[in-house]
Write a protein that binds this DNA or RNA. Structure first.
Lengths: 203, 203
DNA sequence: TTTTTGACTTTTTTAGTTTACGGGTCAAAA
DNA sequence: TTTTGACCCGTAAACTAAAAAAGTCAAAAA
């Protein structure tokens, strides 16, 4: 037996899968390859995960969880809202750099109900966090906004949207973000954050 | 002869092409169909346009020109910057509604040098217009910005980016904008404009 | 001389077929 | 309870042939 118990084996599988995913991309990784890495049979994987998509989702959740925790810790810090936003941008930047080879978009692109559910819950969690930050600002008298929820969503969408700036059309070929373009996007996110914060500040 | 002179014939072809493009989409329109509509031979079209792409580009330029003129007239009006931005959003909205069936993205998606050139010049023209608006605001003491060019580009990218909000991944299938989602994007653009303008206002 | 055209060639799309690979199952073994 | 080899099966890539559309040109028409 490879592991002491079921959970540990699941964990080992997730680690092996993540390693492959980060090296070759999720879509180019076969169940056989993961099994071979673990010196076990493919059938074993199916004992722990009902199918390949379940494995994808589990990997996704695993890395997503730590990603979110980092942000939420940042969000609770007792610093200016603008500083919080900037720090969150930095965390996201790290995350993208770290997991760029993972081809997350290919996993996310499938329109299955499970994935859609995950995406929705991620959005919700992100929205909650951002709303909380803004509400904190309102409570402290820093901000003057009517509808913190709408403002949070707008901020979120604007940040995400900047990633697509410059491509006036839909890129079916994934634009492998060259260092330069990537840095520019981050710089724009920071600048927009600055303006946005000023724009909702009480005066 | 169908037309008095060469320019008039070119014009007639462009009109026929645009009609077809708007009805069936650019990619589903053949040169033969356009020729048949005009009761002329396909070979005639090639006398006026070197190839199909040249026809695409010409149609693009034609509608793009009027589109830009409308905006530039708006940009020169003597009203508040915020009002100008809002009016430009409305013009763009009309334009998208009007030409949505044209499948512009399919034309724009090809990476040929000619198209890229057009896109670059469009971006430049848009940048110039927005920069001018902001500079006007700076001159009148309404705005306080260091680098109007950078701010204009940021505003432009943020507006464009909002179109992609909510799709956390790259949609290879073109999202035919349902009325509802479309209206939401426009609303967000207006709201972000409001905040953005406040954010760069002198205080 | 300028413009148009029918007949032609070349290129691209599409639809149909085959094949190989990877996802997934299961009864038996450990 | 966990693991496995052998097997099945659906699908996506690879190939192919046929159709359609793009593009050319010499000769006719204006």
């Amino acid at each position: 037996m490879l592991a002491e118990n079921k959970d540990e084996m699941r964990e080992k599988i997730l680690e092996a899968a993540l390693k492959r995913f980060m090296h070759y991309g999720a879509s180019k990784t076969t169940m056989n390859e993961i099994a071979d890495d673990l010196r076990c049979s493919k059938a074993s994987l199916y004992y722990y995960f009902s199918d390949k998509k379940a494995l994808h989702n589990a990997v996704l959740m695993k890395i997503g969880e730590t990603f979110f925790e980092e942000q939420e810790i940042e969000a609770d810090k007792d610093i200016s809202s603008e500083q919080i936003f900037t720090n969150i941008i930095a965390i996201k930047k790290q995350f993208v750099e770290r997991y760029s080879r993972l081809e997350l978009f290919k996993i996310l692109n499938d329109k299955s109900e499970e994935i859609q559910q995950i995406i929705r819950s991620v959005h919700e969690r992100e929205a909650k966090m951002l709303t909380k930050i803004i509400e904190k600002g309102v409570a402290s008298g820093e901000f003057d906004v009517d509808d913190p929820v709408a403002i949070a969503q707008l901020y979120r969408d604007a940040m995400e949207g900047l990633r697509f700036a410059g491509m006036s059309c839909l890129p079916e070929t994934i634009p492998d973000l060259d260092k330069e373009a990537f840095e520019k996007i981050v710089a724009q996110q920071k600048l927009l954050t600055e303006i946005f914060v000023r724009g909702i500040k009480k005066r």
